[in-house]
């Protein structure tokens, strides 16, 4: 069970990475400056969680 829970946790990091990548992609694609700033702010928790900093 501990291993299974570990796999689930790994899946969450993968999920964070996936949405992080999509956020980055949208950031580079958007033509709206305000949206771009907001994408940056939203990216912060995704990146820091992925790096296991917070």
């Amino acid at each position: 069970m501990i291993t299974l829970n570990g796999l689930v946790t790994a899946a969450y990091y993968a999920m964070t990475a996936l949405f992080g990548v999509v956020l980055c992609r949208n950031f580079f694609r958007t033509r709206n400056a305000q949206d771009a700033v907001l994408y940056c702010i939203i990216l912060v928790p995704f990146v820091l969680r992925l790096l296991r900093v917070k």
Binding site: F27, R31, A33, A36, V37, C40, L43
Partner: peptide
């Protein structure tokens, strides 16, 4: 202008 905002916000982030 948008590119500038993007670069700046990325840097600050």
């Amino acid at each position: 202008r948008t590119l500038l905002v993007k670069a700046l916000s990325l840097l600050i982030t």
